[in-house]
């Protein structure tokens, strides 16, 4: 009996040792430890073992079972480890990534959002108005006389209805004041139209951001502080900003704002980025006439307004040399903003 146990154990361990795959290992387990396996079969012979030897043989049998079970476990782990290793064999992590489509927001959206975010932190709310406008909202109410150079079919798109495509987002100033009372603190991003041939620096449809703040005691200091802060946030805290006196019909005094641009490999230069000024009393008067009240009495409220070209800001920000890149939607260009 002892010899048989020894023999079975030896044979079993040899068989397990020789096994090369999980299936053979399972077959071996069944052949050795299964119901009809060699070890249980031998165990059946315990009945015939003399009583005084039972304990010893039993121990031997247990020992053999333990040894075989351990060998099976060990082999199973070894096979699993080998399989795991095989599964990773030949994987080349340096192969190119699988392609996913990367989308992008348009540079104009990016710059507009940045500008809006800064101004919203300063408490400006968004406003809007129609793009197909009346002469009143585009010109008359903005103190632009009937014979002003901009008011003709050569510079402005008109419709047979007599309406026109707004030439600036300043129309939203009027729209907002017509429907709401002071204080007004709004920004209005939107399209504007001018009858310009499209070339490297002009679009007939372009994008502006308008701003208006009207309240009691709005001063030039507010205008200056607000726009300095805005431009420092947009272009960097140490960006130089200058206000040049200028003329717009709907603000007085009026200024154009330049920032000093430091482009790589170029002399720093002043670049115009915005127009601004204190709301002309004539604009308030036109709004009052339209409202039929004195909500915007020039003796009691003052305000400042500003406007900037977003396409231009995008060009400055990213060094875009041809404005047409902003409307051609070449994905080789757009992809760079992903």
């Amino acid at each position: 009996m002892k010899d048989q146990i020894d023999a079975i154990q030896t044979e079993a361990l040899a068989r397990i040792g020789a096994v090369a795959d999980a299936r053979s290992l399972e077959e071996a387990r069944v052949a050795i430890l299964g119901k009809q396996g060699s070890l249980p079969q031998l165990s059946a012979g315990m009945r015939e073992v003399p009583k005084e030897q039972k304990a010893e043989v039993g121990q031997l049998l247990n020992g053999a079972r333990q040894a075989i079970t351990a060998a099976l476990e060990e082999k199973k782990d070894a096979l699993q480890a080998a399989a795991d290793a095989r599964a990773l064999e030949g994987i080349d992590p340096t192969l190119p990534a699988r392609a996913l489509h990367h989308g992008s927001l348009h540079p104009l959206t990016l710059i507009r959002h940045q500008a809006i975010s800064i101004l919203r932190r300063m408490g400006f709310a968004l406003a809007e108005g129609p793009e197909i406008e009346t002469e009143f909202h585009c010109f008359d109410a903005l103190n632009t006389p009937a014979d002003h150079p901009a008011r003709n079919e050569k510079d402005t798109f008109y419709f047979d209805s007599g309406k026109l495509l707004r030439t600036h987002t300043s129309t939203v100033q009027i729209r907002t004041m017509e429907t709401g009372k002071p204080p007004v603190r709004i920004i209005a991003p939107g399209s504007a139209y001018r009858r310009d041939e499209i070339d490297a620096t002009h679009l007939s449809v372009f994008n502006q951001l308008e701003g208006l703040y009207v309240d009691a005691d709005v001063s030039l200091g507010d205008l200056k502080g607000t726009l300095e802060y805005f431009l420092h946030e947009l272009f960097g805290a140490d960006t130089e900003v200058r206000f040049r006196p200028h003329f717009f019909p709907f603000t007085e005094p009026s200024f154009e704002i330049d920032v000093k641009l430091h482009a790589k490999g170029q002399q720093p230069k002043w670049i115009e980025v915005a127009g601004c000024g204190m709301v002309d009393p004539a604009v308030f008067e036109a709004v009052n006439d339209s409202r039929g009240d004195l909500a915007y009495d020039p003796a009691r409220v003052t305000g400042f307004a500003f406007g900037m070209g977003l396409d231009r800001l995008a060009m400055i920000r990213w060094g875009i040399k041809d404005i047409r890149l902003l409307i051609e939607n070449d994905t080789r260009f757009l992809r760079q903003f992903a």
Partner: peptide, 22 residues
């Protein structure tokens, strides 16, 4: 305009429908 002192302040205004749409 250099002589004018910059001032940073503003009246609170609530957000608008346009804000929500944006």
């Amino acid at each position: 305009l250099d002589a004018v002192e910059s001032r940073l302040r503003g009246t609170f205004v609530p957000s608008s429908e346009v804000d929500h749409r944006y």
